[in-house]
Amino acid sequence: MDGAADSRLAAHTALLAAFVAVAGPVPVAGPQSRSPRWLAGILVAGVAAAAAFGLHSLFPAVPLLTAAVGLGMVVGQIPASQRMLDTTLKPGIALSARRLLRLGIVLLGLKLSLVDIAGLGWPTIVVIVLIVGITFAATLGLGKLLRLPGTQPILIAAGFSICGASAIGAMSAVTRSKDEDQATPVALVTLCGTLAIFILPVLRIPLGMSPEDFGLWVGLSVHDVGQVVATAQIAGPAALAAAVVVKLTRVLTLAPMVAIVGLVERGRDRRADRRALALDADAVPVVRARRPPIVPLFIAGFLLAVLIRTFVPLPDAVLSAADSLQTTLLAMALFALGSNIRFAALARTGWRALIVGLASWAFIAGLSLAAVYLLR
Rank of each mutant, 00 (worst) to 15 (best):
P256F: 04
R270K: 11
L248C: 03
D213W: 10
R204H: 06
V189H: 00
C192G: 08
V186F: 04
Q233T: 13
L200V: 13
I234A: 12
D224F: 01
A272Q: 12
V189Q: 01
R275F: 00
R266G: 09
L252H: 09
G262A: 00
L200Q: 12
L248W: 01
D181Q: 14
Q182M: 15
R268V: 00
I260M: 07
P185I: 07
A272R: 11
S221I: 12
A239G: 08
V186Q: 05
T194S: 12
V258M: 07
S210T: 15
A243F: 04
P211Q: 02
G226T: 15
I199P: 11
L220G: 10
A183R: 09
V225I: 14
L200I: 14
R274P: 00
A242R: 14
R275S: 08
V222P: 10
G219K: 03
V258P: 03
A276N: 00
V228M: 02
T184H: 06
L252I: 07
G208E: 09
L195D: 04
L191E: 05
D273L: 13
L191N: 11
A272W: 03
A259M: 13
A243L: 04
V186K: 04
S221N: 12
E265Y: 01
S221L: 07
G226H: 12
R250G: 04
A239Q: 05
A230Y: 06
S210H: 07
A183E: 07
T190D: 07
P256A: 07
V202N: 03
E180M: 02
A259H: 02
C192L: 15
D224S: 05
P237V: 13
V244N: 00
A230F: 11
D213T: 12
T190E: 12
E265W: 00
L240H: 11
G219Q: 08
A183N: 10
L188V: 06
W217D: 06
H223P: 06
A242E: 15
A242H: 10
V218T: 05
A239H: 10
P206D: 10
I205G: 13
V222Q: 06
R268S: 03
V228P: 02
I205K: 15
A196T: 01
L240C: 11
I197N: 09
T194K: 05
P201A: 08
L220M: 14
P201C: 03
D224P: 05
I234N: 06
R275Y: 00
L188H: 03
F198H: 04
A235L: 03
E212A: 15
Q233S: 14
L191Y: 05
R204K: 15
V245T: 15
S221K: 12
A241K: 14
Q182N: 15
I260H: 00
L240A: 13
L188T: 04
E180H: 08
F198Q: 10
G193E: 08
V246W: 03
G226Y: 12
A230C: 15
G208D: 11
C192Y: 14
R275L: 11
L252K: 04
R204P: 09
T194V: 01
A230T: 12
V229N: 02
L195H: 03
T249W: 04
I234W: 13
G208T: 05
G215S: 06
K247H: 02
A183I: 12
R266H: 00
G208N: 10
P185E: 01
L191T: 14
A272V: 04
K247Y: 02
G262S: 03
T194D: 01
R271H: 10
V202Y: 04
R274E: 00
R250D: 01
D273W: 11
R250A: 08
V222Y: 06
